[in-house]
Amino acid sequence: MTIAIGLEGSANKLGVGIIRHTPSKPAEILSNIRHTFVSPPGEGFLPKDTAIHHRSWVVRLVKQALKESGATVKEVDCICYTKGPGMGAPLQSVAVAARTLALLWDKPLVGVNHCVGHIEMGREITGADNPVVLYVSGGNTQVIAYADQRYRIFGEALDIAIGNCLDRFARTLNISNDPAPGYNIEQMAKKGKHLIDIPYTVKGMDCSFSGILGFIDAYAGEMLSGAEKRDPDTGELITPEDLCFSLQETAFAMLVEITERAMAHVGSTQVLIVGGVGCNERLQDMMGIMARDRGGSVYATDERFCIDNGIMIAHAGLLAFQTGFTTPIDESTCTQRFRTDEVFVKWRE
């Protein structure tokens, strides 16, 4: 029986989670709490402010997580933290906190790749055995499949991530960042009904979102400055809700298409969606229709595990720790760039 505490802070969420692994049993989540830095509408979160947020909350969150878990410091076997990828300043704040805890409690440290954390947590929660993984978040868009001890990236966004595209469009429309810009776009999209023609860019198993963003930003800009846009078929006015709807329909169709290509390529029928954008129910629906057509199914988790959290770092860290992996304190750095396929996955066959 092993217990790990995980600290995550690669973007605007600070998460602390405590997990227990018992051989031949599912992992037990003892606690999983999160505090999000929310920026005002029209603004993104800046690294400096986010780092300040993490520094001022980390002690409170660790204390609360320990209390909720019922575990004692003595029972904790290792401290897991996000080594990367992510924003430099927030990552550093959390790495400092992790190092401090390791020295204070005299526990080994385990540096974890954020993307691998998402994948392992998704597999654990959904029970998907060997799925093609679509990892979609504010900073990442990757189609991943496991082969020979690595999570290999089959396709990815060649420029900006899907979540970044949605977040930035939310800023253009001045949509609230609370609880998340993507969530608010999803709610607005439910009321949209006219599909406007948006560029659709798929290149093999890769895709691109910057052209879409540029197009829809310009379109929204004209609308905001008073230009009347009408649907060519019905003559009805195009609303901001229609823009959200069109953006989602187009961008998600691209994601489903590249995932389907990867599934055909590796011969898999399971899809696992992870990352913050993975909460989106429309994306889950579309993926489900595609997977059913191929005789398979889609696996997705809810916001507790899709959105960045500490428990996934604890879980992936503990998997590595159980194979004998630790990060010595003088190597316990963090890095903004850390590819998913750089991690040697010793714990899988």
């Binding site: 992510g86 060649l158 890769d206 760039r337 590819r339």
Partner: peptide, 13 residues
């Protein structure tokens, strides 16, 4: 350039 951008673009979690 494409290799660099595709492989090592800024990846924020």
């Amino acid at each position: 350039e494409v290799r660099l951008r595709g492989r090592k673009k800024s990846m924020v979690g």
